[in-house]
């Protein structure tokens, strides 16, 4: 049996006296959509930051395809094939949408700087090939019309979509989405759901996402992990998690009858 794509083992993260995550373990299966939910401050984003290398665990291990990857830096994690988006949208605001998405290809580019400078031969062909990939993603996410617009000028919903496009440009094996639908209206949410499912179905990309909208989570995820106060309180199929006593308590408050 091959090792799962990603394993988080007994990970704790402390900032001084504050424990953001406490002995959290979870497994991301290849090709599946995993949702991480939980009340505000439960440690969801911290968990995503640990997986993508922005934070390092105080204790515990992170395995990528069975290999210990606990202390990698964000660029190294990106090199492994993990791409992510951010809760507050981190786009390159001064660059056009096209350039933003092209930056997602940086890790795929190689070859001589000299040739690139001269824009000649293989370098030129390479640039065109990357451009073709990016154009496919632009078509896929239906953002053709805003190709040349500076990213900073776009409305929030579209910025989130461009951020997803940049992450997809890296052709990731694991895609981490931090609240991909926050602040969106109903139609935008439906579009985003469709894109996430399509990415998963067409490219076989494994997706781990944080989301607050419960109906969205129940609809699109294969598995759900619930965090509360930095601890994992449930992990299972959406329909099971929905009925879980601890989850209901965390979301609705404990009844003392």
């Amino acid at each position: 049996m091959t090792a799962p794509l990603l394993e988080v083992q007994q990970v704790s993260v402390r900032f001084g006296a504050l424990t953001a995550l406490s002995e959290v373990s979870l497994t991301v299966e290849s090709g599946k959509i995993l949702a991480i939910i939980g009340p505000n401050g439960a440690g969801k984003t911290t968990l995503l930051n640990v997986i993508s290398g922005f934070y390092h665990p105080t204790a515990g291990r992170i395995l990528f395809e069975g290999r210990d990857r606990t202390h990698l830096s964000p660029p190294d994690v990106a090199e492994l094939g993990v791409a992510r988006t951010f809760q507050n949208v981190a786009l390159f605001k001064g660059m056009s949408v096209l350039d933003n998405i092209m930056t997602g290809r940086l890790l795929k580019m190689n070859g001589s700087f000299l040739l690139e400078a001269l824009y000649w031969g293989p370098a030129r062909r390479q640039e065109l090939a990357h451009r073709a990939v990016v154009e496919r993603i632009i078509d896929f996410l239906e953002i053709q019309a805003i190709r040349k617009t500076p990213a900073g000028r776009l409305p929030y919903g579209l910025q989130k979509r461009v951020e997803l496009a940049r992450a997809l440009a890296a052709e990731p094996r694991l895609l981490l989405l931090d609240e991909p639908m926050a602040g969106m209206n109903v139609e935008e949410k439906e579009d985003m759901c469709r894109f996430i499912l399509d990415v998963n179905a067409e490219f076989g990309t494994s997706i781990t996402l944080i989301e607050h909208d419960m109906s969205v989570v129940m609809d699109i995820s294969d598995r759900v992990v619930v965090l509360d106060y930095g601890r994992k309180i449930a992990d299972g199929l959406p329909e099971h998690v929905r009925k879980d006593r601890a989850v209901l308590d965390a979301y609705l408050g404990v009844s003392h009858d």
Partner: peptide
């Protein structure tokens, strides 16, 4: 240009 614009995002794309 990416690094100048957003440190975190630049890190995340490698």
């Amino acid at each position: 240009r990416a690094v100048a614009d957003d440190h975190e995002a630049a890190l995340s794309i490698g």
